[in-house]
Design a protein around this nucleic acid. Structure first.
Lengths: 105, 105
DNA sequence: GATCCATATTGACGTATATCGATACAGATG
DNA sequence: CATCTGTATCGATATACGTCAATATGGATC
């Protein structure tokens, strides 16, 4: 997967428009201040999991806004969702983010 | 730089809003189908460099649109610009993209 | 089943962005 | 200096996105 010496990393061959669109969709799901913050919070939490209320407190964003961002991350396959009693717990799914790491490694 | 076992990668500690904004700005510069395609084209080209006209042909986008995307990449420090005779040559600067790789490696 | 709590969804609003046609600019050529 | 060519900028437009207040939903508790 390593590339030419001038520019190491993935992206071994030119992307067609469809592949580029798929990859961009995944990147866009993370390329937002609030969502990067959420990912970093999850990553620092025990078992990489937090409930929504903790994220709301930590980010200072409104609850609907946090819920929106979590939905974006969920739809992109970056986090998983689980209901436990009153709370919904979100946890990081490491595989999708590793795809991004591989592209620019 | 390695993280907890549940979710490998960078982002060792929670990001504050400012750091998250900076990182998001860099990611947004790449998180677009056209720009990912451009980066992959540069990466596949000799010395990771191409002139604008080649990129216009390869992507099928209009010349102003390509110029716009190259400006975004340039402003983000992802590509360099050099005039050679008639043409402007753009080349990949590998360091910025490596930052992204490190975050999700 | 009535209530309560955490979360999800809806509606609205302002901002950002991707795209293109038209035009301006700059270096090379005659 | 006039012209030609490749690239950058401008103006306009349509779409996407981030945010919040208000409201709906759905599981838990009494």
């Amino acid at each position: 997967m390593a590339g030419p010496a001038c520019c190491p990393g993935g992206l071994g061959s030119p992307l067609d428009r469809e592949s580029a669109t798929d990859l961009a969709r995944l990147m866009k799901a993370v390329a937002d201040p609030a969502r990067l913050q959420i990912v970093s919070l999850l990553r620092a939490a025990p078992d990489c999991a937090s409930c929504v209320c903790d994220i709301t407190d930590a980010t200072g964003l409104s609850q609907p806004t946090v819920s929106h961002h979590l939905k974006v991350l969920f739809d992109a396959g970056i986090v998983d969702r689980e209901k436990r009693g009153y709370w919904t717990w979100y946890s990081l799914l490491p595989t999708r983010l590793s795809e991004l790491g591989a592209v620019f490694a």
